[in-house]
Amino acid sequence: MTTGGMVTELDKGDILGPVEYTLSPFVVREYCHAVELGHDCFQGNIGDLVMPSTLIHLDKLRLYTHACPGGTGPTARIHFEFDAELFAPIRVGDNLVVKGEITDRYLKKGRDYVVLVMELRKAETSGLLIRYTDHVILAYSEA
């Protein structure tokens, strides 16, 4: 178990979270503003707002903050791969629970890769809303 330290120390089998939160309109609109998603379903009236599946990427940071109080570590993390499957609309006001597991850590061409699989569920029903797989490189070097 390598949680409790830095992100660069995470290893296969580590469990991150669960962390519970309520999706706010500010979070949806602010994120979508930052990435130029100007559609009504992301920037419109509160009752129409849904969470873009890409926002799960910031739940990764939520889990890192929770599991790794020591911060990023000595090297910058490079996001390499994003894979999100969205099963149902996620609306403002929904109570959510996010949890993650480090499913792999391996060396390739001198680079350290970490795979994190996350699930976002409705707090009340445990219904699965998003399954997300995230690949990062822990320290970049020219391949």
Partner: peptide, 26 residues
């Protein structure tokens, strides 16, 4: 990745934000 999602919502409306899968590699 978000610019790609934006194009998908342009094309398919909010369906792209409700029941979908998006995979990207940098």
């Amino acid at each position: 990745t978000n610019w790609i999602l934006g194009l998908l919502v342009d094309l398919f409306g909010s369906a792209a934000a409700m029941n979908s899968r998006l995979s990207t590699k940098y």
